[in-house]
């Protein structure tokens, strides 16, 4: 106790720091968030609902959901496969793979979008072949999905690699030595052990997928009612001085952010809980403790 007191700052320092932090949060996070909702409902609830039920708004919401629904399963597949190979096997190019996974974090989203235009656009590398076969990628849903995939793919893998490395191979080897096939081992042992980390990664990837602007903006072509996602829709309405419409659409995104935050907190809490269980099960504690005491300690 005395050591804790000894390193504690004076009361006024603590108050000052707390106030600064809270003020900062208020000015730059809470205030803008509140402003979104205030502006969205400025013309009343009916106008808000009407703005959201416009065909173009509905189409933007639908497209955003569709793109997320395409990107997330791909991310789960890729993330689990990449994390598994990195955490479980030694192979040539492992370091390169780890670096590559981080690439989308390092590259500007606009550049990412541009890369796809250069590859699949009408003047691009595969442009002629694609138009000859009547396949549209740029300025269409496939392009938006590709761009979204590019910017979101590190999330799941990044979350799972350290988790799987920490857990080690023992449980999987135990499952196989007990006669489990590869699939049985994956479904019954590996997946249950990584499920919270996986969910956490998916939540982060989802938030990014639905909110992505830069990369999608480059490849979308801004065709109203067809290739506008929610963030693009917000920008268009705002540029047309349609305050209520822009902020109504923005409020949907803001709401999504809040849901993401709550889901993230819940999952983080569950993960911490499991990590505690994990560390408890690894500690070479004394085995002599009577079971009654062990259960009481929980």
């Amino acid at each position: 106790m005395s050591t804790r007191r000894a390193i504690t700052e004076p009361r006024w320092v603590r108050l000052l720091l707390t106030t600064v932090a809270l003020l900062f949060l208020g000015c730059f996070l809470a205030l803008p968030l509140a402003a979104v909702f205030v502006e969205a409902f400025a013309a009343g609830v009916p106008a808000y609902l009407k703005a959201l039920s416009e065909p173009e708004a509905m189409s933007a919401i639908w497209l955003t959901l569709l793109v997320a629904a395409i990107a997330l399963p791909c991310n789960v597949l890729f993330g689990v496969a990449a994390a598994w190979s990195i955490a479980r096997f030694e192979f040539r190019g492992k370091a390169a793979l780890i670096t590559l996974i981080d690439l989308p974090f390092a590259v500007s989203p606009v550049v990412a979008g541009l890369v796809f235009v250069l590859l699949f656009g009408s003047q691009g590398l595969f442009g002629q072949w694609l138009s000859a076969h009547d396949i549209k990628i740029i300025f269409a849903v496939p392009g938006i999905a590709l761009a979204t995939l590019f910017v979101t793919f590190p999330f799941v893998a990044r979350e799972l690699i350290p988790l799987m490395q920490a857990q080690g191979r023992d449980e999987e080897e135990a499952a196989v030595s007990l006669g489990a096939s590869g699939w049985q081992m994956f479904w019954r042992v590996t997946l249950p052990n990584i499920k919270w980390g996986l969910l956490y990664g998916v939540i982060l990837a989802n938030a990014r997928a639905m909110g992505e602007f830069g990369a999608v903006s480059v490849v979308s072509g801004h065709i109203r009612g067809e290739t506008n996602t929610l963030p693009l829709h917000v920008e268009i309405l705002y540029n047309e001085y349609n305050q209520v419409g822009a902020f109504a659409a923005a409020s949907v995104l803001a709401l999504l952010a809040l849901v993401t935050l709550i889901a993230k907190t819940v999952v983080e809490w569950r993960m911490r809980h499991e990590t505690e269980m994990l560390s408890a099960s690894l500690s070479p504690e004394a085995a002599g403790a009577p079971p009654a005491a062990a259960s009481a300690a929980r």
């Binding site: 023992d170 080897e173 489990a180 099960s281």
Partner: peptide
């Protein structure tokens, strides 16, 4: 293969399925 050898293996840190 391990699963066809019918050996029982007890790991140093037990490797019980924690879930």
């Amino acid at each position: 293969h391990v699963r066809d050898r019918h050996v029982g293996f007890v790991f140093q840190h037990y490797a019980l399925f924690r879930h």
